Simulated scan of single mutants.
Amino acid sequence: MNELFLILLFSLLPALGTFGGGIAAEYININRKNLSLALHVAAGVILALISVELIPQALKASTPWIVILAFVTGGLFFVTIDQLIDFVQGQLGGKKSKTAWAIFFGVAIDSFTDGLLIGTGSLIDLQLGFLAAIGVVSADIPEGFATISAFKEKGIKRKTRIILNFFASVPVLIGALAGYWLLKGQPLIVEYAVLAFTAGVLLTVTAEEIIPESHRNGEARLAALALIGGFALFALISVI
Rank of each mutant, 00 (worst) to 15 (best):
S111P: 07
L173T: 07
V136F: 05
Q91K: 15
K184E: 12
G115A: 01
Y27E: 07
Y192G: 03
S169H: 05
Q186V: 00
G200I: 01
F71A: 10
A24N: 00
G175Y: 01
T63L: 13
A168G: 10
V45D: 02
L35W: 12
R158L: 06
P171D: 03
G179R: 00
E3I: 10
T160H: 06
T120W: 06
I50Y: 10
L8A: 09
F112G: 04
V172E: 08
P56Q: 02
I228E: 03
L9E: 06
L13P: 07
L183Q: 03
G90E: 08
A132P: 06
T147A: 12
L183E: 04
G74I: 04
A226D: 04
L236S: 14
E153Q: 15
D82M: 14
F105P: 00
W181L: 15
L177M: 11
S149F: 02
D86M: 10
L233K: 04
I211R: 02
T204E: 01
L173V: 07
L164M: 11
A224S: 13
F112H: 08
L227Y: 15
A235F: 13
S138W: 12
G93L: 12
V41K: 09
I228N: 03
V107P: 01
F197M: 04
I174F: 12
V239T: 14
